[in-house]
Design a protein around this nucleic acid. Structure first.
Lengths: 247, 247
DNA sequence: GGAGTTCCTTGATGTGTCTCAATGGTTAAG
DNA sequence: CTTAACCATTGAGACACATCAAGGAACTCC
């Protein structure tokens, strides 16, 4: 089970090949508490799970709508964002394979979500999911852990948005993607950017132009290399670490 | 129990009068799940609770330290913040009476915490608290709800820091304080600011000077009145709402 | 009462990032 | 092959906010 899941994480998120077959990996992720997973529990969760394929640029969760579902991304990249009335956009996070969406237990979605690439994910109806929680308190602890991590990430992002310069923001962003790829079993060095410069700007609280200028600045400084589109080579990781902290 | 708690919330956070007596209100807050509170549970939680008085400007939680305790603020105002190596500060939130601190279930504290005013709070040792969770799964759900709310607030703050102008930030900040006071049974109109302009700046991702200038600008525009120090009258609430959203 | 400290405000000036505008590259459609 | 759409990059100029500097109000401590 574990290996199947890892395999899926590896699979591309940009190409044209068919997406991998649906699997119970998402259910396993939800249930992956410290102790061993009971096959019975797994089946029960799998029973309420449905697999969903989402086309590029499709908005599949809208801020303010009733929060009917909970998602686990299996493949691809999702951007989660909020809008101001005049259209200004702030991306609050990018979701990669393995990440959860909508696990806040509020009435309505707090953010919208759009597929940056083609996306495959598992979907759990919230009501039925909530029923599971009463039977398996372990899941609640697991969710609490996930929420804790998200909160910590949000606080780091506040530091970035409130106090870091453009160069620090972009460096931090590249390192974050690198670490996340490594954590999912990928490589740390060539970082893949499935999102556009505009998306990066909306995530970092900058404009496209500033992001683009900062990339070329980092390139000229010998910190990164831009060869193919959507791929960044981190030439000097430790120097980039310093940059991201303002040294 | 409820009324005693409300009383406590009302009590000043800046003066010299003695702080109110410790009470089981914090324990009640933790246990206040949907269903009625069992006195027995309450006693058990109260047994591991200790009351802590914290002097103004005292740092009582430091980022990176082992997360041994969980706090519930009973009285006063706390600022929660992160620092960059060169001293730049980002305040991730202000805690008022009733708010929790350190409920993330990570190994170490993600932020530091400093008493803005004199503060009284209840403290739970994490280990013993965790033991309680296994016996009362309801608490976990409650914590999940709290974490959800914090996450939503963090996302709003990201929009503020990433996309709002100085005027929009300050307006949003004043309205937030107003709403929180109202929610705790206080008044919505004269908003009390226990923190300094510098703290507000570090929360809003601005400088002291910009915050100060924005206050006078709002005053001249007839949106607020500044009479006594630390108190802001919101003359035109709906106009302020518009300002905070960029209309 | 005087001295020191902290906090708030205001002015003058600087600058990092935004805005506006143009270009070329790439991809998709006809 | 042509056209359109989107995306990334770069330049010139503008502006919101930062920085630097100074003064006054409130408070604390002798």
């Amino acid at each position: 089970m574990k290996s199947a899941c890892a395999q899926q994480v590896q699979s591309l998120s940009s190409g044209k090949e068919p997406l991998p077959e649906p699997c119970a990996a998402c259910a396993a992720r939800v249930l992956s508490v410290c102790d061993a997973i009971d096959d019975c529990d797994l089946d029960r969760l799998a029973a309420i799970t449905s697999v969903q394929d989402i086309a590029r640029h499709q908005i599949f969760v809208t801020e303010g709508d009733p929060a009917d579902h909970l998602f686990n991304v299996t493949d691809g990249t999702v951007k989660v964002y909020k809008l101001l009335p005049d259209g200004r956009q702030q991306i609050t996070g990018f979701l990669l394979a393995g990440d959860f969406l909508g696990l806040s237990f509020l009435e309505r979605y707090g953010c919208s979500a759009e597929a940056v690439t083609r996306v495959r994910c598992c979907r759990f109806p919230r009501k039925q999911f909530a029923a599971l929680l009463t039977d398996f308190p372990g899941i609640e602890r697991r969710l609490l852990g996930i929420a804790s991590n998200e909160l910590a990430a949000a606080q780091d992002q506040m530091v970035l948005l409130g106090r870091k310069t453009a160069r620090e923001r972009v460096s931090t962003f590249l390192l974050m993607l690198s670490r996340r790829a490594a954590r999912s079993g990928g490589t740390t060095d060539p970082v893949i950017l499935p999102m556009t410069r505009t998306d990066i700007a909306d995530y970092l609280g900058l404009t496209v132009e500033t992001v683009s200028r900062t990339f070329t600045q980092l390139k000229k400084g010998g910190f990164i290399e831009l060869r193919e589109a959507g791929i960044v080579h981190l030439s000097n990781l430790s120097a980039l670490e310093d940059l991201s902290q303002g040294f």
